[in-house]
Amino acid sequence: MKILSTFFLCLFLVSSANAQERFLTKKGMISFFSETPIENIEAQNNQVLSIVDATSGKMAIAILMKSFMFKKALMQEHFNENYVESDKYPKATFKGDIIDFESITTSETTTAIKGDLTIHGKTKEITINAVTKKTNEVIEMTGNFFINLTDFDVKIPSVVKNNISEKIKVSFRLYHKAYKK
């Protein structure tokens, strides 16, 4: 009887803890920007999935590459076909830890996030800064950082070398809400 009650207690603890501890968004925004004297290229994705586990301070992000929208349809086609090879590598992911997660308050604080970013099948450890804010219902994160295309084996052919920057600025805005299963 005691065992049974312990079991139910555990089950209850797990389920009740789950209700509060995770924060999720399915409409996160990630955009990137390439700046060269010849042309600027930008694309935005408003269907980013991101989750934060408030007990462990861990977070994960999943980005569908085909959901990046460009101004020029041909650029979008080339991005998917020739650069990130979306048929082969449909998703970019991030998995990491929010450093000092406990220090995040209801007012904006700058927090470091460290983890593995995977794009085009290549993984690199990065540390980025995010402006974060947390309430009982919401965890907000915004920020930007730079990535090098060479780190992710995305090759730029010589004819368009002057049109695409090696360094790409990535911006994000993730508005997580309390996640209930």
């Binding site: 797990v14 803890a17 994960a60």
Partner: peptide, 15 residues
């Protein structure tokens, strides 16, 4: 149970 991989949860939640 509670430390189930976060990316797996995203996989399940993906529309």
């Amino acid at each position: 149970l509670s430390s189930q991989d976060l990316l797996d949860i995203l996989e399940l939640e993906a529309p």
